[in-house]
Design a protein around this nucleic acid. Structure first.
Length: 479
DNA sequence: ATAGGGTTAAGA
DNA sequence: TCTTAACCCTAT
């Protein structure tokens, strides 16, 4: 834990990253980055569950899932959470068996070694470790009996077939799915969905902060409005009532420095009734106070954390790219990394006249819109110094809050910040003997220098290793 | 993608 | 402290 960042920043990053295809390395570094507060354990868990889902999305299981389940168990343990359901035990057991027994499938020369290696890794490594630590969270009778059976198969090749047959009776993917479903039902909507929803619902807050619309255009909430615009806005608001009135549970605590994203008691009626008045909820008041008290503070709220956030996000993303270059296309644009952001917000700005309608419709169309998409807005604009004029002004209930219009920024801040790239060194992880053995076999089989091929051939063994790691390790081994 | 030089930090 | 394995950076 050597990166000390604001909880909120951690959330921003998380929200951004959670839309990327994550790998273990990134999840674990993310989790280690997150402040170790209790409220974050739910976040971590959601992240891990999500990771599991993506692991099984291809319809198969891997040892990574064991790892993740162990992490979840650890989290629950720390949280002194209820006795574990049987589902996580069943899932763990099925996956462990599947990951071991799969090596009984092939009958080539290496398979014996690989099976043995798997037994050692999974059953003598993971399972024994848990037993010794008296961590019973994932241990079941079923697991114990499988352990004996699989161990026996190490010495007795004649029972391979029967073990294999029996193992196929377990539906590992199904078991995992079942467990994940249970957890998700338990947790409820993900934190990020809640944030997004809270933000989406809280029109007032967005207006005050100058956030508006899907593409990150910002509007002035000041100035006279013509009747037409008012009608449009009113329509929009009522059209979204159901969102606003939906009860949000477990809403995030919001931003710790000044501005707050809060799930207040915002009923639909409240919103539609007071759209154009200054809302007088405590949350809004707090924001106003923050705005008034000091423009420097405001700048700090808006700008300060971003360099760190962007750098960290960028770091992690670049490591995703480094590792999985071109592996899978991402469904959404990388908000931060994509230069087209500037263009798209420009488009919205050009549209400012009919903005209210346009943007809000967009919101309805894309209800699962990324929070970061909106946050990128904040990045695209910076506060004008004239914000100082706000100090001393009393809020004007009739016209809403008067914020100076944010000034358009030409360069993408991400570009600006990516220069002083802060990169965190990976956690030091010693090579296990089985990894070394596997590397030797790999080099023998595929030849020295074909590190990527070797890595791909033994993905299970080389957990969290890169091809460069293999290369470096070989250099060490042959010195 | 790989090779090779450079840096960091674990362990003796 | 020194050695060295693991990790990072950069040129090809």
């Amino acid at each position: 834990m050597d990166v000390d960042i604001d909880v909120d920043i951690a959330r921003w990053i998380l929200e951004f990253l959670v839309r990327q295809p994550l790998d273990d390395r990134i999840v674990s570094s993310l989790i280690s980055i997150l402040p170790p507060t209790n409220e974050n354990s739910g976040l971590k868990k959601s992240l891990l569950l999500r990771r599991i889902e993506s692991e099984i999305s291809a319809g198969s299981v891997s040892e990574k899932i064991l790892d993740i389940l162990e992490q979840i168990e650890e989290l629950d343990f720390q949280d002194k959470i209820k006795q574990h359901s049987d589902l996580i035990k069943a899932a763990y057991c099925s996956v462990a068996v599947a990951c071991t027994a799969k090596f009984l499938n092939d009958k080539d020369v290496d398979s014996k070694f690989r099976y043995f290696d798997a037994v050692r890794r999974i059953w003598r490594g993971r399972v024994c470790k848990m037993e010794n630590a008296e961590k019973v969270g994932l241990i079941s009778e079923e697991l114990k009996s499988w352990k004996d059976e699989l161990e026996a198969a190490v010495w007795d090749e004649s029972i391979w077939d029967s073990v294999l047959q029996k193992s196929k009776g377990l539906d590992a993917v199904g078991a995992v799915r079942l467990y994940v479903r249970e957890e998700k039902d338990d947790i409820g909507p993900s934190f990020l969905e809640l944030v997004a929803e809270a933000l989406r619902a809280d029109d007032k807050l967005k207006g005050i902060l100058g956030f508006k619309g899907t593409h990150g255009g910002a509007i002035q909430s000041s100035g006279p409005r013509d009747a037409n615009t008012e009608v449009q806005r009113a329509n929009v608001v009522s059209g979204r009532k159901h969102v606003a009135s939906k009860r949000i549970r477990g809403a995030p605590s919001g931003m710790s420095r000044g501005a707050k994203i809060i799930d207040g008691d915002t009923s639909g009626a409240d919103i539609s009734g007071k759209t154009f008045d200054l809302p007088s909820t405590p949350e809004v008041h707090e924001v106003q106070e923050a705005l008034k008290s000091s423009s420097l503070d405001l700048k700090a709220v808006v700008k300060d954390p971003l360099p760190d956030a962007l750098n960290i996000a960028d770091t992690v993303v670049s490591s995703i790219e480094r590792k999985d270059a071109g592996k899978q296309p991402v469904e959404e644009n990388h908000v931060g990394a994509n230069p087209s952001i500037a263009e798209s917000s420009g488009a919205v700005q050009a549209n400012e006249g009919t903005l209210g309608n346009h943007c809000s419709e967009h919101q309805k169309d894309a209800p699962r819109q990324s929070l970061m998409a909106r946050s990128s807005t904040a990045r695209t604009f910076e506060w004008d110094d004239s914000v100082d004029a706000l100090a001393g002004d009393s809020p004007n209930p009739g016209n809403g809050v008067q914020l100076p219009s944010p000034k358009r920024r030409v360069v993408s801040p991400l570009k600006k910040y990516e220069i002083n790239n802060m990169k965190k060194r990976r956690k030091f992880k010693r090579w296990s003997t089985s990894e070394e053995e596997t590397l030797r076999i790999g080099v023998e089989k595929y030849g020295r220098g074909n590190w990527k091929v070797i890595l791909n051939a033994y993905r299970d063994v080389f957990d969290e290793r890169t091809e460069v790691d293999l290369k470096d390790k070989w250099r060490n081994l042959t010195r």
